[in-house]
């Protein structure tokens, strides 16, 4: 106990409640819209309390199966990106902080530079690459005249190689998103705070680098990995621009894309806010659940690390 200032405590609570009311406002209205009929939602002013249509609205939006399929896609993509991103960045952060090798700083700055090359900036060429990732290989085979040898060796025709594409595939949705400066940055910061003595001790014990990573660094980073995984899962679930382009087939689209397309796609129609908000709630539920359920774990991890 530091000091007793009841007025300050009360002020804190008041400010928190006020702030949270403002933060939760959009959700509350989404909920209202999702629990009414379209006619009620379009009333001016809109009702201020929830109605009884939520079940019917949810039934309507889930009836044709597309939403279910898109939610599954979102799940696959989110888990894929999360696992991929964490593995890739933990490995490179390890390499950068614990090894001395030529071009170490170059590697660091290259990774850092991707912070300045977000996908929005290079979207058209990235799409071209993803549509035809093996184009350079095919070009190489053609110019060197080794196409025949390649076909004999692999059993694939050069034409098939050229046409091989990441469009409308899970690999296409996942791979380009697995590189991450932010995550590498975070692990690097974390590793830098780990006492040097640990490595000295491990070296005295004759532990190999991989052993050190698995036995020492991994346990120490676990809470951070969980925290990061929450963030990455949500980040991947909510991706917008890339899935919008790399999937052209609605059956491969993620749930966010599916909903966004419904809202923007019909200029002549009155948006069915009740159904759209029902879908929005369903689509937002998984990442919110992840954040809420893992939050306790996350907090526990933080408290533990303080001891």
């Amino acid at each position: 106990m530091i000091e007793r200032t009841p007025w300050l405590d009360r002020l804190c609570h008041a400010m928190l409640i006020l702030g949270i009311a403002a933060v939760c406002l959009p959700l509350y209205y989404a909920l209202i819209a999702a629990t009414h009929t379209l006619q009620d939602v379009l009333q001016v002013p809109m009702p201020l309390t929830p109605g009884g249509e939520l079940w019917n609205n949810l039934k309507t939006v889930t009836s044709n199966g597309t939403l279910g399929r898109q939610l599954t896609n979102s799940l696959i993509v989110s888990v894929g990106v999360t696992v991929g991103k964490i593995s890739v960045s933990i490995l490179s952060a390890f390499a950068i902080t614990y090894f001395r090798f030529p071009f170490r700083m170059t590697a660091f700055w290259l990774i850092f530079a991707t912070l300045m090359l977000p996908i929005e900036v290079r979207i058209v060429p990235t799409f071209a690459v993803a549509a035809h990732p093996l184009q350079p290989l095919a070009w190489l085979l053609e110019t060197t005249g080794t196409g025949g040898a390649f076909e004999w060796l692999t059993g694939w025709s050069v034409e098939a190689v050229v046409k091989w594409s990441l469009l409308d595939s899970y690999a296409g949705l996942i791979l380009p998103l697995t590189a991450s400066a932010t995550a590498t940055f975070l692990f690097r910061q974390l590793f830098l705070t780990i006492p040097e003595e640990l490595l000295e001790a491990a070296k005295i014990d004759g532990a190999s680098p991989m052993r050190f990573l698995v036995d020492v660094l991994w346990p120490m980073s676990r809470t951070n990995v969980v925290a990061l995984a929450v963030i990455l899962f949500v980040f991947s679930w909510n991706q917008y621009l890339w899935p919008l382009l790399i999937t052209t087939d609605p059956a491969m689209a993620t749930a966010v894309i599916g909903l966004a397309k419904q809202i923007s796609g019909a200029p002549e129609a009155v948006p069915k806010w009740n159904l759209l908000m029902s879908s929005a709630l369903l689509i937002t539920l998984p990442p919110v659940m992840v954040v809420i359920v893992l939050q306790r774990w996350f907090v526990k991890g933080l408290v533990d690390s303080e001891k």
């Binding site: 098939a160 046409k163 091989w164 595939s169 690999a171 397309k261 419904q262 796609g265 019909a266």
Partner: peptide, 23 residues
Amino acid sequence: ALGISTAFAAPLEIQFWHPSLGP
């Protein structure tokens, strides 16, 4: 397993792309 499509369309399937026009 990765779900990579190999871009072989079945013969005489004809693709028709249109905007989603809602109702």
